[in-house]
Design a binder for these strands. Sequence first.
DNA 1: CGGCTTTCTGGAATGAGTCAAGATGAGAGC
DNA 2: GCTCTCATCTTGACTCATTCCAGAAAGCCG
Lengths: 141, 141
Amino acid sequence: MPSTSDFEQSLRAAALRVTRPRLAVLTAVHGHPHADTDTIIQAARAGLGEVSHQAVYDVLRALTAAGLVRRIEPSGSVARYEGRTGDNHHHVVCRSCGAIADVDCAVGDTPCLTAANDQGFTIDEAEVVYWGTCPSCSTST
Amino acid sequence: MPSTSDFEQSLRAAALRVTRPRLAVLTAVHGHPHADTDTIIQAARAGLGEVSHQAVYDVLRALTAAGLVRRIEPSGSVARYEGRTGDNHHHVVCRSCGAIADVDCAVGDTPCLTAANDQGFTIDEAEVVYWGTCPSCSTST
DNA sequence: CGGCTTTCTGGAATGAGTCAAGATGAGAGC
DNA sequence: GCTCTCATCTTGACTCATTCCAGAAAGCCG
């Protein structure tokens, strides 16, 4: 996991100001993969004291726009964020407990980006969500 | 598009009672592909008079559970529903205007269902969303 | 250090979706 | 065809994630 100075560089590289809340949120996102907003707020507060939820939302939006974090929203769940960007991986979501795990795509770097007929759309990203059951939910059945 | 009697049969086959609201919602979903909940409510009312939003939500949930309709939720959008199920197609979403179009997958019937490492998950469905720009938004740039 | 701009705080508002209780009507048996 | 039973629909209030707003504070640059 990147260090605080790495995050600082990332922020500066994205032309964003380096502030305590931003570093805290960035650290929280990297330390809690697929965490929902509330978890990130909790984590940010744990390392910073008090942060308004508004600041976290704002920071997350800025970071998402800058491409430093990725926002994922499985159906039926609240928005979640993750720090791994640019490596084109996808997600498995457990139907039972909502757990999310990373999976690399089988095909390569930009898989499935070749739709049979693209309807004239200019496709620039393919997002894949696998639905299934996680190991612990499978066994507890 | 299926007729009302087809919908009746589908409902009965799913052990659901055939009611006016259900037929109206089913018709609305088939007549308005990828429509959001509000649109479906409007469409159902157009063919039925007055329907409570609660009934529509309930019907949509029942139909989704029965597999008669499919629920899709692109990030940043409200829930949408479609009547085409079982043919394993995917969607292109326009980042600009939010338009949704169907695409058949290039690989075949159950594409991309082979994740590189499934983390022990039992995967039963792969959902693919292509992000891009629709023809009209591309040209108007 | 000073000024400008962006960001953070705190609170209130929005809006999709859900819950609960009672009324209604579809389906089954007589 | 009639009646009974239970799933389904109506109404209305409510939850909760997310957003909007205005003012205060802090970071960045010269």
